[in-house]
């Protein structure tokens, strides 16, 4: 079911928490609602679920206007950050609860509960109580309970943030698998860019209630529309420099410049991702710190009055204080307006 939001606005006493404009969430895909804490992504999820009422605007599930419907009439499944399982009920009773409320026949409840349990792989836990389960198992139960009523849209509110690192990896793959198997349109709220990048089909990145960019994860990483998007994605994060632009060239140092075909009034900020750097002979730099990260090595060095980060191959043995030659791959280099943060594109790109 395609989900369309038309100028959805939510105000909380004087502050605008959410203002979506026109927003379409793809049918049958896993969409990540990404943004820093307090950016309105959870509020947006609650608006979609019906637990909160919008100040203005409309919500459509396909062609159905659900704006004025209560949550139980919207055909949604919702998974909460802390799972919200009913502690006095068994796993089976928890999963069956939405069906019992709908007065589904007993035999059908049993059958659908069993099917869900096998989908999320908790068949052997059906008679346990929630407090006898691990966090990951509780999350599986919560997902089964959300899916058992065959919702048109599955909403997940920071489903992984209460899990430890290893379980988080496991569960995010599980969520991807379950979503692919069921094909249910899924919205996944997270503040973790890596989580969003790794499992979603599309990311909606929000800041202060406003959508910044909406596209596939790889495109968002490679082609950010503004400085906020560029900064939010990537670990280690992008670095910014005030390189001068002269005669159609961007001057990294006095002796090293790259051709840059832009026309722009006002200050320019250059963003360079750490993986843009590689060994070469364009520039000699003195290494300040070295951090071995397992799959690669992160070094820092001084550049243009500030500090640059670069990722080197793990086999590259370097030491602090050493001077090495580096070069830049220009496709990982982005220009932004220094005032507004808006991306400045080269002439041939436009």
């Amino acid at each position: 079911m395609e989900l369309r939001l038309k100028n959805l606005v939510k105000d909380f006493t004087g502050t605008r928490a959410v203002d979506t404009g026109e927003l379409t969430i793809l049918d049958g895909k896993l969409t990540g609602l990404l943004g820093p804490s307090g950016c309105g992504k959870s509020t947006l999820l609650y608006l979609i679920s019906g637990l909160q009422k919008p100040t203005s605007g409309r919500i459509y599930f396909g062609d159905r206007d659900v704006t004025d419907l209560p949550p139980e009439k919207r055909e949604i499944g919702l998974v909460f950050q802390n799972y919200a399982l009913y502690p006095h009920m068994t796993v089976a009773q928890n999963i069956a609860f939405p069906l019992v409320n709908r007065k589904v026949k007993k035999a059908e409840i049993r059958e659908r509960t069993a099917k869900m349990a096998s989908l999320v792989q908790i068949e052997e836990l059906l008679n346990r109580k929630p407090n006898q389960l691990s966090g990951g198992q509780q999350q599986r139960v919560a997902i089964a309970r959300a899916l058992v009523k065959r919702p048109e849209i599955l909403l997940l509110d920071e489903p992984l943030s209460n899990l430890d690192a290893r379980l988080r990896l496991e569960m995010r793959e599980e969520i991807r698998r379950i979503q692919t198997e069921t094909g249910v349109t899924t919205v996944f709220v997270t503040h973790d860019q890596e989580e969003a990048m790794s499992i979603t089909d599309e990311i909606i990145l929000m800041k202060k209630g406003v959508v910044q960019q909406q596209c596939g994860p790889q495109q968002m990483y490679l082609d950010p529309v503004n400085q906020f998007v560029a900064s939010f994605l990537g670990s280690p994060p992008i670095d910014y420099f005030r390189f001068p632009l002269r005669d159609g060239r961007l001057w990294i140092t006095e002796g090293y410049s790259l051709p840059m075909d832009v026309r722009h009034e006002g200050g320019i900020l250059t963003g360079i991702r750490p993986e843009a750097w590689g060994r070469g002979d364009a520039l000699q730099v003195q290494i300040q710190t070295v951090e071995h990260r397992g799959k690669d090595t992160l070094i820092t060095f001084g550049l243009a009055g500030t500090r640059a980060r670069a990722l080197l191959d793990i086999t590259d043995t370097v030491r602090p204080g050493e001077t090495i030659g580096v070069t830049l791959r220009p496709q990982f280099l982005y220009l932004f307006d220094a005032e507004s943060g808006v991306r400045i594109r080269q002439e041939e790109e436009q």
Partner: peptide, 25 residues
């Protein structure tokens, strides 16, 4: 209160929530 929200989404009315969730707990 998140249990109340979960129950709402699960199609459980206020009186039912009282009888099925609040009282047993």
């Amino acid at each position: 209160s998140v249990l109340y929200k979960a129950a709402k989404v699960d199609g459980c009315g206020d009186f039912r929530y009282l009888m099925r969730i609040m009282l047993p707990m």
